[in-house]
Amino acid sequence: MSATTTKSPSLGEAFWRGCRHGAPFVLVVGPFAILFGVLATEAGLNVLETLAFSVVVVAGAAQFTALQLMTEEAPTLIVLASALAVNLRMAMYSASLTPYLGAAPLWQRALIAYIILDQSYACASVEFEKKQDMTVPERIAYFAGTSAPVVPSWYFCTYLGAGIGTRVPDSWALDFALPITFLALMAPMLRTRAHLIAAIVSVVVSLLAAGLPYSMGLLIAGVLAMMAGARAELYFDEKARRT
Protein backbone atom coordinates (compact mmCIF):
# COMPACT_ATOMS: atom_id res chain seq x y z
CA MET A 1 0.00 0.00 0.00
CA SER A 2 1.39 3.34 -1.01
CA ALA A 3 -0.72 5.01 1.66
CA THR A 4 1.42 3.52 4.45
CA THR A 5 4.43 5.67 3.55
CA THR A 6 2.52 8.91 4.08
CA LYS A 7 0.28 7.52 6.82
CA SER A 8 2.59 7.70 9.83
CA PRO A 9 3.72 11.34 9.52
CA SER A 10 0.15 12.58 9.01
CA LEU A 11 -1.05 10.53 11.98
CA GLY A 12 1.75 11.85 14.17
CA GLU A 13 0.97 15.36 13.02
CA ALA A 14 -2.73 14.90 13.86
CA PHE A 15 -1.86 13.49 17.28
CA TRP A 16 0.40 16.43 18.15
CA ARG A 17 -2.10 18.94 16.89
CA GLY A 18 -4.61 17.28 19.23
CA CYS A 19 -2.12 17.53 22.11
CA ARG A 20 -1.57 21.23 21.47
CA HIS A 21 -5.32 21.90 21.35
CA GLY A 22 -5.95 19.86 24.50
CA ALA A 23 -3.04 21.22 26.55
CA PRO A 24 -4.65 24.52 27.70
CA PHE A 25 -7.48 22.52 29.30
CA VAL A 26 -4.98 21.18 31.83
CA LEU A 27 -5.36 24.56 33.56
CA VAL A 28 -9.10 23.88 34.01
CA VAL A 29 -8.92 20.18 34.75
CA GLY A 30 -6.00 20.38 37.19
CA PRO A 31 -7.58 22.60 39.86
CA PHE A 32 -10.92 20.78 39.44
CA ALA A 33 -9.19 17.43 40.11
CA ILE A 34 -7.31 18.85 43.10
CA LEU A 35 -10.63 20.05 44.49
CA PHE A 36 -12.13 16.60 44.01
CA GLY A 37 -9.17 15.03 45.79
CA VAL A 38 -9.50 17.43 48.71
CA LEU A 39 -13.29 17.10 49.09
CA ALA A 40 -13.22 13.30 48.72
CA THR A 41 -10.58 13.01 51.42
CA GLU A 42 -12.54 15.38 53.66
CA ALA A 43 -15.61 13.16 53.14
CA GLY A 44 -13.59 10.26 54.52
CA LEU A 45 -12.24 8.50 51.40
CA ASN A 46 -8.64 7.29 51.47
CA VAL A 47 -6.14 8.01 48.69
CA LEU A 48 -6.77 4.72 46.87
CA GLU A 49 -10.55 5.19 46.87
CA THR A 50 -10.24 8.80 45.74
CA LEU A 51 -7.85 7.95 42.92
CA ALA A 52 -9.94 4.94 41.84
CA PHE A 53 -12.90 7.28 41.48
CA SER A 54 -11.01 9.50 39.05
CA VAL A 55 -9.47 6.64 37.06
CA VAL A 56 -12.66 4.58 36.74
CA VAL A 57 -15.19 7.36 36.19
CA VAL A 58 -13.12 10.19 34.53
CA ALA A 59 -15.98 12.69 34.77
CA GLY A 60 -15.60 15.54 37.22
CA ALA A 61 -19.19 16.72 37.56
CA ALA A 62 -20.52 13.18 38.04
CA GLN A 63 -17.84 12.42 40.63
CA PHE A 64 -18.72 15.55 42.62
CA THR A 65 -22.43 14.69 42.39
CA ALA A 66 -21.85 11.15 43.66
CA LEU A 67 -19.65 12.46 46.46
CA GLN A 68 -22.20 15.08 47.51
CA LEU A 69 -25.08 12.58 47.56
CA MET A 70 -23.03 10.00 49.47
CA THR A 71 -22.29 12.57 52.18
CA GLU A 72 -26.07 13.15 52.35
CA GLU A 73 -26.37 9.37 52.85
CA ALA A 74 -28.60 8.92 49.82
CA PRO A 75 -29.35 5.31 48.82
CA THR A 76 -26.82 3.79 46.39
CA LEU A 77 -29.35 3.59 43.54
CA ILE A 78 -30.17 7.29 43.83
CA VAL A 79 -26.46 8.16 43.92
CA LEU A 80 -25.85 6.15 40.75
CA ALA A 81 -28.92 7.41 38.89
CA SER A 82 -28.23 11.06 39.73
CA ALA A 83 -24.54 10.94 38.85
CA LEU A 84 -25.31 9.12 35.61
CA ALA A 85 -27.93 11.75 34.80
CA VAL A 86 -25.13 14.35 35.06
CA ASN A 87 -23.15 12.21 32.61
CA LEU A 88 -25.94 11.87 30.05
CA ARG A 89 -24.21 14.59 28.07
CA MET A 90 -21.46 12.04 27.33
CA ALA A 91 -24.05 10.09 25.33
CA MET A 92 -24.74 13.27 23.39
CA TYR A 93 -21.01 13.71 22.68
CA SER A 94 -20.81 10.06 21.64
CA ALA A 95 -23.75 10.56 19.28
CA SER A 96 -22.31 13.64 17.67
CA LEU A 97 -18.84 12.06 17.22
CA THR A 98 -20.31 8.97 15.56
CA PRO A 99 -20.54 10.42 12.02
CA TYR A 100 -16.81 11.25 12.19
CA LEU A 101 -15.39 8.23 14.01
CA GLY A 102 -18.05 5.53 13.52
CA ALA A 103 -16.08 3.90 10.67
CA ALA A 104 -13.03 3.17 12.87
CA PRO A 105 -12.36 -0.43 14.03
CA LEU A 106 -14.36 -1.50 17.08
CA TRP A 107 -11.31 -1.75 19.37
CA GLN A 108 -10.37 1.83 18.57
CA ARG A 109 -13.90 3.02 19.23
CA ALA A 110 -13.91 1.08 22.51
CA LEU A 111 -10.75 2.93 23.61
CA ILE A 112 -11.95 6.28 22.31
CA ALA A 113 -15.14 5.91 24.36
CA TYR A 114 -13.11 6.04 27.59
CA ILE A 115 -11.63 9.41 26.65
CA ILE A 116 -14.83 11.14 25.56
CA LEU A 117 -14.63 14.15 27.89
CA ASP A 118 -15.94 17.70 27.86
CA GLN A 119 -12.48 18.87 26.78
CA SER A 120 -11.73 16.33 24.04
CA TYR A 121 -15.22 16.78 22.65
CA ALA A 122 -14.90 20.56 22.66
CA CYS A 123 -11.67 20.32 20.61
CA ALA A 124 -12.86 17.60 18.24
CA SER A 125 -16.25 19.08 17.42
CA VAL A 126 -14.54 22.25 16.19
CA GLU A 127 -11.65 20.50 14.41
CA PHE A 128 -13.71 17.84 12.59
CA GLU A 129 -16.18 20.42 11.35
CA LYS A 130 -13.40 22.72 10.16
CA LYS A 131 -11.26 20.04 8.47
CA GLN A 132 -13.73 17.88 6.60
CA ASP A 133 -10.95 16.14 4.60
CA MET A 134 -9.35 14.42 7.61
CA THR A 135 -9.21 10.62 7.27
CA VAL A 136 -10.77 8.45 9.98
CA PRO A 137 -7.33 7.33 11.34
CA GLU A 138 -6.24 10.99 11.48
CA ARG A 139 -9.37 11.86 13.41
CA ILE A 140 -8.74 9.02 15.86
CA ALA A 141 -5.13 10.20 16.30
CA TYR A 142 -6.27 13.79 16.80
CA PHE A 143 -8.88 12.72 19.36
CA ALA A 144 -6.36 10.62 21.29
CA GLY A 145 -4.04 13.66 21.20
CA THR A 146 -6.58 16.02 22.76
CA SER A 147 -6.95 13.83 25.84
CA ALA A 148 -3.26 12.88 26.13
CA PRO A 149 -2.41 15.94 28.30
CA VAL A 150 -5.83 16.06 30.04
CA VAL A 151 -6.38 12.54 31.37
CA PRO A 152 -2.98 12.10 33.11
CA SER A 153 -3.40 15.54 34.75
CA TRP A 154 -6.84 14.46 35.93
CA TYR A 155 -5.30 11.42 37.67
CA PHE A 156 -2.24 13.21 38.99
CA CYS A 157 -4.07 16.26 40.37
CA THR A 158 -6.67 14.02 42.06
CA TYR A 159 -3.75 12.30 43.78
CA LEU A 160 -2.28 15.68 44.68
CA GLY A 161 -5.60 16.85 46.13
CA ALA A 162 -6.00 13.66 48.14
CA GLY A 163 -2.55 14.30 49.58
CA ILE A 164 -3.46 17.86 50.61
CA GLY A 165 -6.83 16.58 51.82
CA THR A 166 -7.86 17.39 55.34
CA ARG A 167 -5.02 19.86 55.91
CA VAL A 168 -7.09 22.66 54.30
CA PRO A 169 -8.38 24.89 57.12
CA ASP A 170 -12.14 25.56 57.47
CA SER A 171 -11.56 29.31 57.09
CA TRP A 172 -10.87 28.76 53.37
CA ALA A 173 -14.61 28.01 52.99
CA LEU A 174 -13.84 25.17 50.58
CA ASP A 175 -17.39 23.95 51.13
CA PHE A 176 -18.39 26.60 48.62
CA ALA A 177 -15.76 25.84 45.97
CA LEU A 178 -18.07 23.29 44.38
CA PRO A 179 -21.11 25.59 43.92
CA ILE A 180 -18.88 28.38 42.58
CA THR A 181 -17.09 26.09 40.13
CA PHE A 182 -20.33 24.57 38.84
CA LEU A 183 -21.99 27.97 38.46
CA ALA A 184 -18.97 29.20 36.50
CA LEU A 185 -19.06 26.13 34.23
CA MET A 186 -22.80 26.44 33.75
CA ALA A 187 -23.18 30.15 32.98
CA PRO A 188 -21.58 30.02 29.49
CA MET A 189 -23.88 27.09 28.59
CA LEU A 190 -26.97 29.30 28.93
CA ARG A 191 -26.76 30.28 25.27
CA THR A 192 -30.40 30.12 24.25
CA ARG A 193 -33.77 30.86 25.84
CA ALA A 194 -34.44 27.11 25.93
CA HIS A 195 -31.24 26.52 27.93
CA LEU A 196 -32.22 29.32 30.30
CA ILE A 197 -35.70 27.88 30.81
CA ALA A 198 -34.24 24.43 31.54
CA ALA A 199 -31.92 25.97 34.15
CA ILE A 200 -34.73 27.95 35.82
CA VAL A 201 -37.02 24.90 36.00
CA SER A 202 -34.08 22.95 37.42
CA VAL A 203 -33.48 25.49 40.21
CA VAL A 204 -37.16 25.91 41.14
CA VAL A 205 -37.97 22.18 41.18
CA SER A 206 -34.80 21.26 43.09
CA LEU A 207 -35.64 23.81 45.82
CA LEU A 208 -39.29 22.71 46.02
CA ALA A 209 -38.31 19.02 46.02
CA ALA A 210 -35.46 19.42 48.53
CA GLY A 211 -37.58 17.88 51.31
CA LEU A 212 -38.17 14.63 49.40
CA PRO A 213 -36.61 11.52 50.92
CA TYR A 214 -33.52 9.77 49.49
CA SER A 215 -32.22 12.95 47.78
CA MET A 216 -34.58 12.28 44.89
CA GLY A 217 -35.00 16.01 44.23
CA LEU A 218 -31.95 16.21 41.96
CA LEU A 219 -33.15 13.44 39.69
CA ILE A 220 -36.72 14.75 39.46
CA ALA A 221 -35.54 18.32 38.84
CA GLY A 222 -33.08 17.11 36.19
CA VAL A 223 -35.64 15.11 34.24
CA LEU A 224 -38.31 17.84 34.36
CA ALA A 225 -35.79 20.53 33.37
CA MET A 226 -34.57 18.44 30.44
CA MET A 227 -38.15 18.05 29.23
CA ALA A 228 -38.75 21.77 29.72
CA GLY A 229 -35.66 22.60 27.64
CA ALA A 230 -36.69 20.25 24.83
CA ARG A 231 -40.29 21.58 24.82
CA ALA A 232 -39.05 25.18 24.83
CA GLU A 233 -36.74 24.48 21.89
CA LEU A 234 -39.63 23.05 19.86
CA TYR A 235 -41.82 26.01 20.80
CA PHE A 236 -39.25 28.65 19.84
CA ASP A 237 -38.38 26.84 16.58
CA GLU A 238 -42.05 26.67 15.69
CA LYS A 239 -42.51 30.34 16.49
CA ALA A 240 -39.48 31.33 14.40
CA ARG A 241 -40.82 29.33 11.44
CA ARG A 242 -44.19 31.07 11.55
CA THR A 243 -42.77 34.60 11.52
Binding site: V86, S206, L218, A225
Partner: peptide
Protein backbone atom coordinates in the same frame (compact mmCIF):
# COMPACT_ATOMS: atom_id res chain seq x y z
CA UNK B 1 -34.41 13.94 16.98
CA UNK B 2 -36.40 13.81 20.22
CA UNK B 3 -33.57 11.97 21.98
CA UNK B 4 -30.87 14.41 20.87
CA UNK B 5 -33.14 17.31 21.77
CA UNK B 6 -33.40 16.07 25.37
CA UNK B 7 -29.71 15.21 25.65
CA UNK B 8 -28.80 18.77 24.60
CA UNK B 9 -30.22 20.03 27.90
CA UNK B 10 -28.77 17.50 30.36
CA UNK B 11 -25.99 19.71 31.70
CA UNK B 12 -28.14 22.82 32.21
CA UNK B 13 -30.93 20.64 33.63
CA UNK B 14 -28.94 18.70 36.21
CA UNK B 15 -26.14 21.01 37.39
CA UNK B 16 -28.41 23.86 38.61
CA UNK B 17 -30.46 21.31 40.58
CA UNK B 18 -27.29 20.15 42.29
CA UNK B 19 -26.08 23.68 43.06
CA UNK B 20 -29.32 25.45 44.07
CA UNK B 21 -29.84 23.64 47.42
CA UNK B 22 -26.13 24.04 48.28
CA UNK B 23 -26.49 27.79 47.73
CA UNK B 24 -29.83 28.18 49.50
CA UNK B 25 -28.98 25.99 52.51
CA UNK B 26 -25.16 25.76 52.89
CA UNK B 27 -23.94 22.94 55.12
CA UNK B 28 -21.26 25.24 56.56
Amino acid sequence: DWLLRHLRYTAVAVLPALVAPLVAWPAA
